[in-house]
């Protein structure tokens, strides 16, 4: 009940974000270290929503590659990327926002997909159909979903 209330409140808050305030993928401003200092929406991220994005195979699917010890009920955490269980202690929001949006700005050779990017792809497809993409390419996550995942990751602490 409490969780539902929080989620509903978050949905309302997210819905209140003015579209004009959302930073488009092509307008996201990275620092020389690959951080994005400014919020993409101006609406604070919701960690509960961010957790859902992190474990959803069709959205962030962070656990496909990263272990998150705080989510023991989610099966099959991957080993491809670093463990995230203490991310909130070692990373800033700006770093996490930049890594999520396009990790290659910080780690040029990383295999991590860019979750807030809409151009520069080779043979972009239409979802998982194997067919060519049609029209404008949507980022994998929305601006608010990025903010929500940043908020969730900031809660991950060892102690």
């Amino acid at each position: 009940m409490k969780l539902t209330t929080i989620i509903c409140a978050a949905a309302f808050a997210a819905g209140a974000a003015n579209a004009a305030d959302v930073v488009a993928p092509s307008d996201a401003s990275f620092t020389e270290y690959g951080e994005i200092e400014q919020s993409l929406t101006g609406v604070p991220g919701n960690p509960e929503e961010g957790m859902k994005v992190a474990i959803d195979k069709g959205l962030g699917n962070c656990v496909a590659c990263h272990k998150i010890a705080q989510l023991p009920d989610v099966p099959f955490h991957g080993e491809v990327g670093p463990e995230l269980s203490w991310t909130g202690e070692v990373r800033s929001e700006a770093e996490l926002r930049g890594i999520l949006a396009n990790a290659k700005m910080m780690f040029p050779d990383t295999v991590m997909p860019a979750f807030y990017k809409t151009s520069g792809f080779i043979r972009p497809g239409n979802g998982y159909t194997g067919k060519a993409a049609e029209g404008d390419i949507e980022p994998i996550l929305s601006a608010q979903q990025i903010e929500d995942v940043v908020a969730f990751l900031m809660t991950l602490k060892e102690s």
Partner: peptide
């Protein structure tokens, strides 16, 4: 590295 996920064969089968 192809597609929206920008993965090559090597991303998974050589590096990982």
């Amino acid at each position: 590295r192809t597609g929206i996920l920008e993965l090559s064969c090597a991303s998974c089968h050589e590096e990982n």
